[in-house]
Amino acid sequence: MSTRTAELLMAVIMALASIALMYKSSELPIGWIAEEGPGGGAFPFWLSAVMLVCCLWTLFNWFKRATPQSRSDEPYFPGDAFVQFLIGAGSLGVMIGLIHFIGVYGAIPFLIIFYMRFVGDHSWGLTLLLAFGMPIIILLFFEKMLTITLPKGMTEQLFVDYVYDWMYTDWFAWLGSDD
């Protein structure tokens, strides 16, 4: 696909998205309501209309070949860029999907092993060190220190059985003891 074709496709898709946003905004009043001021849908509706006008302007520029992108016959994804894009976005998408099932702490090793071992060709030692070290760092920093609970999916029970007791034990309680 050439950059010129991509420019056209993007402008059309965004124009359709603008129309969808206008339609959705108009579920709330978009005009003036006495005693209340502009309706709740006015702000997003008129801004979506601005988006639509901008897309039409871009399409006009495309027909007139007025911008560098609308003139360019260079490929939109040069060389192996599309493969790189698929590897990057694909592995991240799969990782996020896996979080629903095996939680953050199961998905992190998957992404690291895939990327470091199979894409980067790093040694197994370094790969496994990071694959299992990173979840521990994330656990201690986010869950223990900042008390932000991360999704665990089906691994939740393992944390209840083995990790939480260890994580929330006050290891230095004996220091403050009066006994």
Binding site: G88, L92, H122, I138
Partner: peptide
């Protein structure tokens, strides 16, 4: 190396 940094950044982004 980028192949180490990229997954770490992805993980930090997700978290």
């Amino acid at each position: 190396p980028f192949t180490i940094l990229a997954p770490i950044i992805f993980i930090l982004c997700v978290v």
